[in-house]
Write a protein that binds this DNA or RNA. Structure first.
Lengths: 197, 197
DNA sequence: TCCTTTGCGTCAGTAACTGACATATAGATG
DNA sequence: CATCTATATGTCAGTTACTGACGCAAAGGA
């Protein structure tokens, strides 16, 4: 196979992250990113379908790891069990990648266009988890519900871990899934009564 | 106050929906929408910040109704109770608006760019619900978790109601919140054991 | 050494937006 | 009724994200 192109791609990603941090996302053009990476604007768009994607990469591996985690869960595991196991299986990866994801998060935090893209990435991940659950025999609608609830718990844990990394992501994860339990209304509450009826 | 502009806005929305249905979102330009509405492209962008927004409107009223529903819940209501009450309070509105939302959904279903925008609209709604819950005294992180879980259940109910409207949205809603209960792992399950520890 | 495969540059073009300025019109004010 | 003002709209020029077509160059296999 001739010329790899992976090199230019990495340079483009680095240049994009740097420029977004220096001038902000909106204030940097695709041409500027390409120039700093030593290539043409056209090359930029050959590597990334749009300007935002330069900031997101390696999501495929993460998704694969998560779905594998769900599928590898023991047979007796409930949907939420399987999700918790899946999240714990990528725990180390996330903790190791923190130095790389942190500056990225800072850029995303101040640009709505990137936040929008994060939402679709998360939605794709949720969809993948849902499909993995449905492969385990969970009905499709219920699988999507469980996947969304699981992702909410995961996000909750991640937020907490972001501000307080000491206990480790794993501790935050189990706490999040526990809080999920506590969310269920008290005995005799409205939802409980409606559910019984 | 001179000239209202509300008229042109409505025409633009209608023209956008029609054109998106005829040619698809990507294949219709903002200039075409404006032309059909009898105005200039510039006027289009004065009414809507971008092309996608022409399809979304009246979300503010919906959000206000939802947050009011949360705030109006009785004091003894748990977070999930309050959310269920909020959703049930807009039940009629949604059922009545179905004829208007259905063609819109059809367009959205086949254009990724619009699906992305739906996600941010949903996120904004979730954020609003979360804030309403936190005003009820729920801790902010937990409020967000509850809001996301509630929105997941709401989406689940809406999907089910879309395919089977006969029982009414209310029935699907109570069922969704009940399924949420069932999602909790069985006694002795992994999450239960981890939670206990 | 040729040949194929693939990344890249160049160029032209479309379309989503934006700022600046002029104009027209509905309504309040006298 | 005349005028004045606030606001919507038109016009125009410009930027930038993104795309298709074509040609060149380089890396590896034959």
């Amino acid at each position: 196979m001739p010329r790899s192109g992976a090199d230019a791609r990495r340079r483009l990603q680095q240049a994009a992250l740097d420029l977004f941090r220096e001038r902000g996302y909106e204030a940097t053009t695709a041409a500027e990113i390409a120039a700093r990476a030593g290539v043409t604007e056209r090359t930029f768009f050959r590597h990334f379908p749009d300007k935002r994607e330069a900031l997101f990469d390696g999501e495929d591996a993460f998704r694969a790891a998560l779905t594998n985690g769900v599928l590898a869960a023991p047979e007796w595991a409930t949907p939420m069990d399987a999700l918790l196991l899946a999240f714990r299986s990528v725990e180390q990866t996330i903790e190791n990648n923190r130095p790389l994801t942190e500056p990225r998060q800072a850029v995303i935090a101040q640009t709505p266009a990137l936040q929008e893209r994060v939402l679709t990435k998360t939605a794709a991940l949720t969809e993948a988890l849902s499909e993995a659950l449905s492969r385990r025999g969970v009905e499709r609608g219920l699988a999507m519900l469980a996947a969304q609830v699981g992702m909410a718990a995961f996000a909750y844990a991640t937020r907490a871990w972001f501000y307080d990394p000491k206990p480790g992501l794993g501790a935050h994860l189990t706490r999040a899934f526990a809080e999920l339990q506590g969310l269920s209304p008290a005995r005799g509450g409205l939802v409980a009564r409606v559910t019984a009826g």
